[in-house]
Write a protein that binds this DNA or RNA. Sequence first.
DNA 1: AGGAAGATCTACT
DNA 2: GTAGATCTTCCTA
Length: 194
Amino acid sequence: MKILKRNFYERHPAQVARDLLGKILVKRLNGEILLGRFVETEAYFGLNDPASRAHMGRKPYNQLMFLDAGKTFIYMVHANWLLNIVAHSKGGVGAVLIRAIEPLQGIETMLKNRTVEDACELTNGPGKLSKALAITKDLNGTDVTKTNSKLVVIEDKRENFQIHSSHRIGVKSDLPQELRFFIKGNRFVSKFSG
DNA sequence: AGGAAGATCTACT
DNA sequence: GTAGATCTTCCTA
């Protein structure tokens, strides 16, 4: 398996968000390997992005967004852990929110972690996929470029898929540009639009 | 101590 | 499909 290197994340957040689609998330859980393909992401910036956690400037709770690209940034919203991967060009601020993945391996365990029977409902939302993969705050700051991390992102064979974009979901005041990216027609995307 | 948080679930039309 | 209640942390007063 080929792990994505740090320089993949050291680019504009929107570029990283787009390029993450189709890549594969690896989660180690009690010796088991859970796999999922990214099918929906959103980019968040810094000071000039009202929807961003970093909007208020650098604080203790958001400093990860200012630090090393390629590490996770996990926070709680409405009783859900949301998984982000820090992404920005050097010295910048930003992160990519993982909104949905397509479960590939370890589906039985994921079903057990959630309270649904339908595989479609398993990971089609940021809070849902965290629960399915047992992602919590203690994975905050995990380096997804390190082989022995509990959370890693790897390459995949280039597949034939079309990327669509839309405005971000659930944000009170979004930016004019479209910062949500998803694989067209994939049934594990959280919502249809665009 | 109080509230807001870029979500989810349930219970309806 | 949509609206409203509610899930739990952590930050700010």
